[in-house]
């Protein structure tokens, strides 16, 4: 093992900065086959996540009860809710698209797996969001969801009836987790490039595109 291979910093640099060209990370062109509306649903999902974080931060400004008593607060709650609905719609369309393109080809399995993890982490984050509405819906969901988590032994640690715990998870740990997984997912996409058409042994005449 050479001295650079033992050096933690050198190894980190190789697996991150040196694993990608600047053109891969911030591209100004794409392979000619990247020409379908199905390709916009990844970025639309990210845009919805940006809106979720922005509207969520607005909702944190005056505390969990603000939206019950203020029409401005209620509007931002509506923005947050509809951003969630859009987020999942776009993410599911993105998932369907990637499935039918078999986008895991060419050593892209990790990209697919991080996408699935992001989906599941988002569902858990959404659930905690529903738990902290501090209204009848959140009360009912808390009492129902507790049975599911208790049945797996998880409820003893994540107590859906503990509103304070759900609030802190929803505004701190879970969005951070979703954010990290999504960034990782995007970096994998950028590093590997967009998967080419299904045609492993195909030959094409250059210049046609």
């Amino acid at each position: 093992m050479s001295s650079t291979e033992k050096n933690w910093t050198a190894r980190l640099r190789k697996s991150t900065l040196e694993s990608m060209e600047p053109q891969d990370l911030l591209p100004d062109n794409q392979p000619a086959y990247v020409a379908s509306w199905i390709y916009v649903f990844g970025v639309l999902t990210i845009a919805s996540l940006v809106m979720l974080i922005a509207t969520g931060l607005v909702l944190t400004l005056e505390g969990p009860a603000w939206w019950h008593v203020s029409s401005v607060g209620h509007f931002w709650n509506s923005m947050h809710l509809w951003s969630v609905e859009l987020f999942f719609v776009f993410m599911v369309v993105h998932l369907w698209g990637k499935f039918w393109m078999a986008a895991w080809r060419g050593k892209r399995t990790a990209t697919w797996v991080t996408g699935v993890i992001a989906f599941m982490a988002s569902i858990l984050t959404a659930l905690t969001g529903y738990l902290i509405q501090t209204n009848f819906d959140s009360q009912w969901i808390a009492t129902e969801a507790k049975d599911g988590f208790n049945a797996m032994g998880i409820g003893a640690f994540f107590n859906t009836l503990n509103t304070g715990q759900a609030i802190l998870l929803h505004v701190a740990l879970l969005p951070l987790a979703v954010g990290i997984i999504v960034v990782w997912h995007i970096l994998l996409v950028r590093r590997k490039g967009v998967v080419p058409p299904i045609d492993n042994d195909a030959t094409i005449e250059g210049g046609a595109f």
Binding site: D28, P31, G106, P196, A202, T203, F209
Partner: peptide, 24 residues
């Protein structure tokens, strides 16, 4: 020019203009 499409290799074929920041 004849290309072989190998999904695990970096794309070297024809490209089209794209602006990732503008799209975002």
């Amino acid at each position: 020019m004849v290309l072989k499409v190998d999904p695990s290799k970096k794309w070297t074929g024809p490209t089209r203009p794209y602006d990732i920041i503008k799209e975002g």
